[in-house]
Measured scan of single mutants.
Amino acid sequence: MFYPNSPQTSPQLTQIPYGQQYAMMQRQIQQPYHPFATTEPQARLYPYHYQGPIQQEQGGFITQQSTAASPQYVQMRVTPVDQSIMSGYPNQTANGSSSSSFNYNIHPQQQQQQQQQQQQLRHHAMPVGSVPLQDDRYRKQLIVNYLAPDVTSTDLHELFSRFGELDGARIIYDKQTNMSKGYGFVYFCHAEDAKEAVERMSGYEFHGKWLKVGYSTNPLNIVPSNSSPYVHAGSRGAAG
Rank of each mutant, 00 (worst) to 15 (best):
R122N: 13
C189K: 09
H124Y: 04
L159F: 00
L156R: 09
I29D: 15
K212V: 01
Y50D: 08
S87F: 14
S10Q: 10
S99T: 11
Q20P: 11
G59Q: 11
Q92T: 12
E205F: 05
S10G: 12
P4M: 06
R170E: 00
N103S: 07
S99Q: 13
S130P: 10
W210H: 04
Q112Y: 14
Q111G: 11
Q75D: 07
Y230I: 05
A68F: 14
F188A: 01
I172G: 00
H157L: 05
L121I: 03
E158S: 10
P71T: 12
Y3W: 14
F206I: 01
D136C: 02
P11G: 06
Y173N: 08
Q117Y: 08
A37N: 08
Q115K: 06
S70T: 14
M179F: 08
I62F: 10
R77K: 13
S227Y: 13
L121G: 03
N145E: 00
G19N: 10
Y18S: 07
T38F: 15
V131E: 13
P32I: 08
Y138R: 06
A191G: 05
E196I: 12
S70I: 14
D155I: 03
F163K: 00
R44Y: 15
A37D: 12
Y187D: 00
S66V: 12
A148R: 06
Q118L: 12
S225L: 06
S228I: 09
N95W: 08
Y138G: 06
Q141F: 00
Q55C: 14
F61L: 06
A238I: 08
I85S: 08
Y230P: 07
F185D: 00
S84T: 12
F160W: 09
Q64M: 15
Q56H: 09
G168Y: 02
P41A: 10
P108Q: 12
Y183D: 00
L13H: 07
N221C: 08
G234N: 06
P149S: 08
A239E: 04
Q115M: 13
V78Q: 04
Y230M: 10
L166Q: 05
N105Y: 15
D82N: 12
Q28V: 11
Q92P: 07
G182W: 01
Q109P: 07
P47D: 04
N103W: 15
S101V: 13
F102Y: 12
Q118F: 13
R122S: 09
L220H: 02
S100M: 03
S98N: 04
Y73P: 05
Q26K: 12
Q56G: 13
P132R: 12
Q8M: 12
Y50I: 11
Q12S: 10
A239N: 01
R139T: 08
E57I: 12
L142P: 02
Q55K: 03
S97F: 15
P219S: 00
P219G: 00
P35D: 05
Y138A: 03
K175W: 12
A125C: 08
E192N: 03
Y73S: 04
I172Q: 00
N226M: 13
L220C: 13
P41T: 07
E57H: 15
H124G: 06
H107W: 14
N178P: 03
Q118N: 09
T154C: 09
A169G: 04
F163Y: 11
Q109L: 14
D136M: 02
K209D: 00
S99G: 11
N218L: 00
S84C: 13
H123N: 06
K212Q: 02
Q83V: 15
T63I: 15
N5I: 15
I106D: 03
V144T: 02
Q116L: 13
K209I: 00
F206E: 01
H49N: 13
Q21I: 08
E199K: 11
H49Q: 09
I143W: 00
S216V: 00
S87D: 09
E165R: 14
P17G: 10
N178S: 08
E158I: 12
V231N: 07
H123W: 14
F185P: 02
S100P: 12
S228W: 09
P47C: 15
D174L: 01
S130C: 05
P4G: 02
A43T: 13
G184A: 00
S100R: 12
A233C: 03
M201R: 01
M25I: 15
N221D: 04
Q176R: 08
A43Y: 15
L142T: 02
Q111L: 12
L13N: 06
G208A: 05
H232A: 03
Q134R: 10
T154Y: 15
A197P: 04
D82W: 15
Y89P: 03
M126D: 07
M86W: 10
E205K: 05
G208K: 02
S100Q: 12
T79C: 14
K209W: 00
S87P: 06
Q119S: 08
Q20R: 03
Q8A: 05
T14V: 13
Q65S: 08
Q72P: 07
V144Q: 03
P41V: 13
Q12E: 10
Y50Q: 06
G168V: 14
A148T: 03
Q114L: 10
R139Y: 15
Y22C: 06
S227E: 07
A37G: 06
D135T: 03
W210V: 02
Q141H: 01
A197M: 03
A94N: 08
E158C: 14
S130G: 09
F36E: 07
S6M: 15
V186C: 09
Q112G: 13
S101Y: 15
Q134V: 08
F185G: 00
T63Q: 10
V78A: 10
H124T: 10
E158A: 08
Y89F: 14
Q28S: 07
Q26L: 14
V131G: 05
T217V: 04
Q120C: 05
Q120R: 11
A125V: 14
F2I: 04
S84Y: 15
T154M: 09
S161E: 05
T38L: 12
S66P: 12
Y204K: 04
D174H: 10
I172P: 00
V144G: 02
Q110H: 11
D167N: 03
Q112V: 12
G60F: 15
P7R: 06
F160R: 02
S101W: 13
D150N: 05
G59H: 13
Q8Y: 14
P11H: 08
F61H: 08
Q8V: 10
Y46T: 07
N221R: 14
G203T: 00
H207R: 09
V151N: 01
N218K: 01
I143F: 01
L159A: 06
S10E: 05
S87T: 11
L13D: 05
Q8P: 09
H123C: 11
I172M: 02
Q15C: 08
L220W: 02
R200I: 07
T38V: 15
Q75K: 13
Q8H: 12
P108K: 02
V186P: 02
A43Q: 08
L121D: 03
R27V: 15
C189F: 06
R27A: 12
E205N: 12
Q117N: 10
S84R: 09
Q55A: 13
A37E: 03
S99A: 10
Q115G: 08
Y138I: 02
M25K: 01
L147V: 10
T9Y: 15
E57Q: 14
I54N: 09
T93D: 08
S180R: 02
M25N: 05
I62V: 14
Q120F: 15
V128K: 13
K181A: 01
G237M: 10
A148V: 07
Q83G: 09
S99K: 08
M25C: 10
H34W: 14
Y146G: 01
L211I: 12
A68P: 09
Y187F: 00
W210P: 01
K209A: 00
R137Q: 06
Q26Y: 14
Y18H: 06
S101T: 13
Q15M: 14
Q111V: 12
A191I: 02
Y73C: 09
L45K: 06
T79K: 06
R200W: 02
P229M: 04
F2A: 01
T67Y: 14
Q119A: 14
A197G: 02
A233S: 07
A148L: 01
Y89N: 04
S66N: 08
